[in-house]
Design a protein around this nucleic acid. Structure first.
Length: 887
RNA sequence: GCCAGUGUGGCGGAAUUGGUAGACGCGGCGGAUUCAAAAUCCGCUUCUUUCACGAGAGUGUGGGUUCGAGUCCCUCCACUGGUACCA
């Protein structure tokens, strides 16, 4: 496509000017912009803390070797537009960027080549930074963070220490320093005390079965495993007991759930988090085992069906089995246990269709009626949820029903389904039947009645269960944060804050050791701190660095604290009643719905409890940008060959056009396909803007000269003159109306992040204005101010020419909409007969409804349609339409 | 299966509280300009029917509420995302 305007000249020019002048640096309390800085010009000498803040955050990228794809700039452009808009509205805007640079690809590349992952990471960061900067985003680069920088991760390690040195007090529902934890009376020895503390810390060591991924050579968190395979790479995952670091996120289950109500996230995202946390209310019921001094506790959400329990199931991993199993069943049970332990999660899911299990030979007694219930073991009961055992009510649970049918166990209906529905297999709410004192009660009442009964007899209690599991926090990797932990005599100790950062050792071989230890174990000297004291050789997962990066931005170079107090108070919002607590707007992909966003909320809450941050939630408002698909409507991927590289688009159409197109495609949150023709469309629009301002003659000269001697580009650019049609005259009423219609629409859309329709309003203005013979300078300048957030380079360039000035307009006040310019003297109204438009009338705005009715009934088109009918009713909606009802 | 979301021209999408469906852009058609082409500028472009004026249909399906429904209520269908023996 033919070049519409010389973006290749002025885009880099303005980017350099913004960079050199630190135009987009944001100011912390106590700082002030230098004289001559546009921020200073706008706000005079007002202290930053007196200016309302606006913190607008992007999810920082993992700098992959592939570079930016067109999905990245979608979110970044949206936040940039808003950041620029908010500056013009007079806010002190914080808009930073950084790198989530620990991660698997760099490590795998290192294993293959022996090259240190730092080298790959640095190269990738440089490439990402170049690409991001070429789009003209208004980031404050003085606050850039990199999670792999020791000056950054020393604070990641420091936060880990805070978690390690805290416990969750159930009385206050808050994290507190471990020193406040009291010892129970029966604890006396040092060893007992230590283990008491260790079992209460927010960061603790566990021996439980974990998700082990042999292909990746590391363990994974529950959140990182989908359908039995790793989320990264899709490799099989098996359960295997290992000693690992865990974070006690489950302590926060209820708060993580409750506080969702106080933040502005999309319903679907909140729902995903709610489902993941998975709260369910019910009861724990205790069953006695016949002939033994043993009990089985089960969790159920349907205690009202207790009378319908006909057997019990214990998970094959349960310790109870050894206690209850009868000799004659022992062999069969052990064989079954061995089989299910060998199965990977994937196999267990695959085999889900067909139930399996064996009888243990033992019986339990149903506490309500003394009925004998055979106890089975089956892998459809999970060890990790509830108590790892269930009472089976086959009549009202599909899984129990399937199992009972297969093994011919009794089935008893105890809930009457509503009319028209089959009671057998019904798992909804109905009425209790065959249940003695519950009979006739609706499900809800039956539940509460039976729980009261159980509590009275001390056979059970009201309970709440969560699906959320503690966070498996250690990985067998090289390229991650080392733990600030050392071991002696099998016990762990925290390092002192003054020992931070703990740097990883230099290695040349990044594979795990032959004996299966993590790669850090290769550095024997590093591991050995002193006689009998060795370092922890696991590293933290990639999520660690992203759990708090938004806090480091607030005070990125602070060498004494992870974030300074005044900066934290100002930007996270408690210094001023008007301010939003937390990040004002966070934009990013939906792939982090349950990983990063849950982990970060958890860390933030712990830091909040310990008094380090002042808002209970980190991200007040969150928006997920929709995926951008390839031109063929498929997900972009190398193998499909439908990947669009932003560098190519930038070369051909420039940054402004790319930015504008990314926003014009459709609503930010929607999935939408890429279409390069669409880029051409917005590029043409910007070309029309350019030609509306620039004198045709000098433009022609420029074209010729520039072709001959491209090296003189910047001089030639300066020679371009403003068109003689753009003149300093008073605008007409009509022109003011066009302008203010545009101001109104763009401003409203901006506040609601509807950038696609804002851009279409700008296009409407240009379509109108290009038909004007003379274009009033004041109107055209206001238009450019509306354009700045979207296409900042061309807007700056044209404004500086039109106003004959140098310097940025980034802090110029946003044009203010004035209703008076939209006042009309006459208006078009539609006339409907029985809801169908038959005519349109041009009427004065102050006309009364009787007059309108008369006009409408006299219209020739209307008469034709009501001829042989009787007018029953006439409805007049003033300013809009008239509807004549005739039969 | 369950939970959430989305269905509007050839395509991306507009329609802010129930009030003129299809803004804006892409694509297509026609014209101006040009030796010619590109670029640019102007016009038309939901479908059916009509020479035309017009008429009829139309927002996934079927129904309902209303003077009036893309918008509200119910049924079903399709697609997308999440989740899945969670008792």
């Amino acid at each position: 496509m033919r070049r519409q305007y010389p973006f290749q000249l002025f885009e880099p020019k303005w980017q350099e000017l913004w960079h050199n002048g630190e135009i987009f640096r944001s100011w912390n309390p106590g700082e002030s912009a230098p004289a001559g800085h546009p921020f200073r010009k706008r706000h005079q000498s007002a202290a930053p803390e007196r200016i309302p803040k606006y913190y607008i955050l992007d999810m920082f990228p993992y700098p992959s070797g592939a570079g930016l794809h067109v999905g990245h700039p979608e979110g970044y452009t949206a936040t940039d537009i808003l950041a620029r808009y908010k500056r013009m509205r007079g806010f002190n805007v914080l808009h930073p960027m950084g790198w989530d640079a620990f991660g698997l690809p760099a490590e795998q590349y290192a294993i293959k080549t022996g090259q240190h992952p730092r080298i790959t990471t640095e190269a990738n960061v440089a490439n990402f930074k170049r690409q991001i900067q070429s789009l003209g985003f208004s980031y404050d680069w003085s606050r850039e963070v990199d999670t792999t920088d020791p000056q950054y991760f020393r604070w990641t390690q420091w936060i880990f220490l805070q978690l390690y040195n805290s416990w969750f007090n159930p009385e206050t529902s808050k994290a507190e320093p471990i020193e406040t934890l009291d010892y129970p009376a029966d604890i006396s020895t040092e060893e007992q005390k230590r283990s008491w503390l260790d079992s209460h810390r927010l960061a603790y060591v566990s021996e439980a079965p974990v998700n082990w991924c042999p292909e990746l050579g590391t363990v994974l968190a529950n959140e990182e495993v989908k359908d039995g395979v790793s989320e990264v790479g899709g490799f099989p995952v098996v359960r295997r007991p290992m000693r690992q670091w865990m974070l006690r996120i489950t302590a926060y289950s209820q708060r993580l759930l409750d506080d969702l109500d106080a933040i502005e996230w999309s319903d679907s995202l909140k729902e995903m988090q709610r489902n993941w946390i998975g709260r369910s209310e019910g009861a724990e019921v205790i069953f006695k085992v016949k002939g033994l001094d043993a009990e089985i506790a089960v969790f159920t959400t349907r205690p009202d069906t207790l009378f319908g329990a006909t057997y019990m199931v214990v998970s094959p991993e349960s310790d109870l089995i050894d206690v209850i199993v009868k000799d004659e069943n022992l062999l069969e049970v052990q064989t079954y246990q061995a089989e299910s332990s060998k199965k990977s999660d994937l196999e267990r899911t695959d085999l889900a269709k067909e139930k399996s299990g064996v009888f243990t030979g033992a019986y339990a007694l149903n506490p309500v009626n003394g009925r004998l219930l055979p106890i089975w073991t089956a892998d459809y009961v999970l060890a990790g949820y509830g108590t790892g055992a269930i009472m089976a009510v086959p009549a009202h649970d599909l899984r129990d029903l399937e199992f009972a049918e297969k093994f011919e166990l009794p089935i008893e209906v105890v809930v009457q389904a509503p009319k028209g529905e089959e009671s057998l297999g019904f798992s909804g709410e109905g009425f209790a039947v065959n249940s003695d004192f519950l009979d006739g009660l609706p499900t809800l009442e039956a539940k509460s009645r039976i729980i009261d009964w159980l509590e009275e007899k001390e056979l059970g209690a009201r309970t709440i269960n969560f699906k959320l599991r503690d966070w498996l926090f250690s990985r067998q990797r090289y390229w991650g944060e080392p733990f600030p932990i050392v071991w002696d005599d099998g016990g762990h100790n925290a390092l002192d804050e003054t020992d931070l950062p703990v740097l990883p050792p230099d290695l040349t071989d990044f594979k795990p050791t032959g004996s299966g230890d993590p790669p850090l174990a290769r550095a024997q000297e590093w591991c050995q701190v002193e006689e009998g004291v060795v370092r922890e050789v696991n590293t933290m997962p990639q999520w660690a660095g992203s759990c708090w990066y938004y806090l480091r931005y607030l005070d990125a170079t602070n060498g004494r604290k992870f974030v300074g107090e005044s900066a934290e108070k100002y930007w996270m919002g408690t210094s001023n009643d008007e301010a939003t607590p937390g990040v004002d707007l966070y934009v990013g992909g939906t792939e982090h719905a349950v990983l990063h966003l849950l982990y970060a909320r958890f860390w933030h809450k712990a830091l909040f409890d310990l008094g380090y941050v002042s808002s209970p939630e980190p991200f007040y408002k969150l928006v997920n940008q929709g995926l951008i698909l390839g031109e063929d409507g498929q997900k972009m991927s190398k193998s499909r060959g439908n990947v669009v590289n932003p560098d190519d688009i930038l070369d051909e159409f420039g940054a402004d056009a790319l930015r504008l197109y990314e926003m014009f495609m459709g609503p930010l949150e929607m999935v939408k396909p890429w279409n390069t023709k669409g880029v051409e469309g917005v590029y043409r629009f910007l070309g029309r803007v350019w030609r509306m301002f620039i004198d045709e003659k000098t433009e022609k000269t420029f074209e010729q000269q520039f072709t001959l001697s491209p090296e003189k580009g910047s001089e030639l650019l300066a020679e371009l003159k403003i068109s003689v049609d753009v003149v300093d005259i008073d605008p007409t009423q009509e022109q003011m109306k066009v302008l203010h219609t545009c101001i109104k629409k763009v401003t409203e859309d901006m506040e609601n992040l509807r950038f696609n329709t804002a851009i279409s309003a700008l296009m409407v203005f240009v379509n109108e204005a290009s038909s004007w013979d003379l274009r009033p300078l004041s109107v055209m300048k206001d238009f450019l101010l509306l354009l700045v957030p979207f296409a900042p380079h061309i807007a700056e360039e044209l404004y500086s020419k039109a106003n004959n000035q140098e310097g940025s307009i980034a802090y110029y006040p946003w044009p203010i909409f004035d209703e008076k310019h939209l006042v009309e003297t006459s208006i078009e109204m539609a006339v409907q007969v029985n809801g169908k438009v038959r005519d349109r009338l041009q009427v004065p705005t102050d006309i009364d409804s009787i007059k309108i009715e008369e006009l409408a009934l006299n219209s020739e088109n209307v008469k034709r349609h009501i001829e042989e009918k009787k007018v029953k009713k006439v409805i007049v909606i003033s300013g809009k339409l008239v509807n004549i009802v005739a039969v």
